[in-house]
Design a protein around this nucleic acid. Structure first.
Length: 376
RNA sequence: GGGCAGUUACCAGAGUGGCCAAAUGGGGCUGACUGUAACUCAGCUGUCUUUCGACUUCGGUGGUUCGAAUCCAUCACUGCCCA
């Protein structure tokens, strides 16, 4: 995997670049749709590729390990052939499930012991087997196994959590470096900066990770309950230290405004469930603010879903029709809303990229943030 | 014509003397959702009031009772059964 920077913004830390993987090139900054269980919910692969113009999607180690199971993915020849997505894939390590399934797990030095949310069965995730599993899934970018520390953790907890994550990281690299890809194309391991909202912990974590000289670096443990300003502050602290010539991935973030703010602070990659889940729950994102489709006000608004939208659904269907589909719970409603939202997120990062290249990113961002804040 | 069962809020439906403005679903309105245990979750849904609270309700009317959605009488309507 290689990363080349094509343009730097003169007024901010924003940059436009190209990531080259075994499954093609990614133009950054980029948003990566989340496809936890081997599918971006409600989306066909051709819709992802042609209509939302996604360039890379996510999968999740924890979910894919439970179902369909690693042996099936190996028999299939990896996730790409299994799900028919021929572009790049990134897998999360299960570190986020250490956080979100915290009632069903036990942390130990060796790893995290989980109870399956499906059948209650016990499983142990270690840095080593998480690397092996991600080798078997065959993602182009695989993530270190970490503890995603809650945003409101106290300093002592955050420090201990970070120390564990750092010990796990060394074991991740040891395993990763002593194993080979299984399907004939390269894989890259991204370490994850933790440290909660404490600048000194974040700095220490970033310095440690910078020394690993990984193909790319991730910032985790943000947007997990801390104030947004803290998140921005932590991104600044960390990006001072993380190598400038490697892609930076802000995990799990976020709102359209979060993306623009983070891009301005030097982040290149994002993923978030927001466009997909919120879409299924009736929220649309547009350049002029968010729309709650369930609201009565849309029942007789026959204007297009998004006159500025680039996906065909934006012009084809009216807000009133989509309001109806969402209200009655029709599958098509979830599909249209998801497609629109993903297309919007991808268009947003393309616009960001273009303004970085053209050199007016900051002015554009200021204008956009004001609009995006609206509630329509 | 006779018998039986029933009539509760937008709908369905519980409640059969005080703990009832009345369970629970659905529907409606609003909100939440940030590396997906999420097509999920939360709040509100008689009237007035920000809250406390006040007021008006359980087919109609009239009773019994300190007190009635709940008991009695009667009328109306609905369903089923027998002629």
């Amino acid at each position: 995997m290689t990363f080349t920077i094509q343009a730097n913004d003169s007024q901010s830390n924003a940059r436009a670049g190209l990531i080259t993987t075994g499954h093609g090139v990614i133009e950054t900054p980029i948003f990566m749709p989340v496809g936890t269980q081997g599918t971006v919910k409600a989306m066909q692969m051709h819709e992802l590729k042609e209509d939302t113009r996604a360039q890379i999607i996510l999968g999740n180690t924890y979910h894919l390990y439970l179902r369909p199971g690693i042996h099936i993915l190996e028999q299939a020849g990896g996730l790409h052939t299994f799900n028919s997505w021929d572009g790049p894939i990134l897998t999360d390590s299960g570190g986020f499930q250490v956080f979100s399934l915290s009632e069903n797990r036990k942390l130990k030095e060796e790893g995290a012991e989980f109870r399956s949310h499906i059948d209650g069965s016990k499983h142990l995730f270690t840095p080593e087997n998480v690397m092996d599993i991600q080798r078997s899934i065959g993602a182009d970018i695989i993530m270190a196994f970490d503890e995603c520390c809650p945003g409101d953790a106290d300093y002592d907890y955050a420090r201990k959590s970070l120390e564990l994550t750092e010990r796990w990281l060394d074991r991740c690299f040891a395993r990763f470096n002593s194993t080979e890809p299984k399907y004939g194309y390269g894989q890259s391991l991204f370490p994850i900066v933790q440290g909660c909202v404490y600048p000194d912990l974040r700095r220490r974590a970033a310095e440690n990770i910078a020394r690993k000289e990984a193909d790319g670096n991730a910032i985790g443990g943000l947007a997990v309950g801390e104030p947004t300003e803290k998140m921005y502050e932590m991104i600044e602290v960390v990006n001072e230290i993380l190598p400038k010539d490697k892609p930076r991935y802000l995990m799990g973030v976020g709102t359209p405004i979060n993306l623009l703010e983070a891009i301005g602070r030097g982040v290149d990659m994002f993923d978030c469930i927001m466009p997909t889940r919120n879409g299924r729950n009736g929220q649309l994102f547009t350049e002029y603010g968010t729309i709650n489709l369930r609201n009565k006000k849309w029942e007789n608004d026959f204007s297009p879903i998004d006159p500025d939208g680039t996906s065909y659904v934006d012009q084809m269907y009216s807000k009133a029709y989509l309001h109806h589909l969402v209200k009655v719970g029709e599958y098509l409603g979830y599909q249209i809303a998801t497609l629109h939202n993903l297309a919007f997120y991808l268009r947003l990062v393309r616009m960001a990229r273009q303004h970085i290249v053209e050199g007016d990113y900051c002015e554009w961002k200021t204008r956009m943030v004001r609009q995006l804040n609206n509630r329509l």
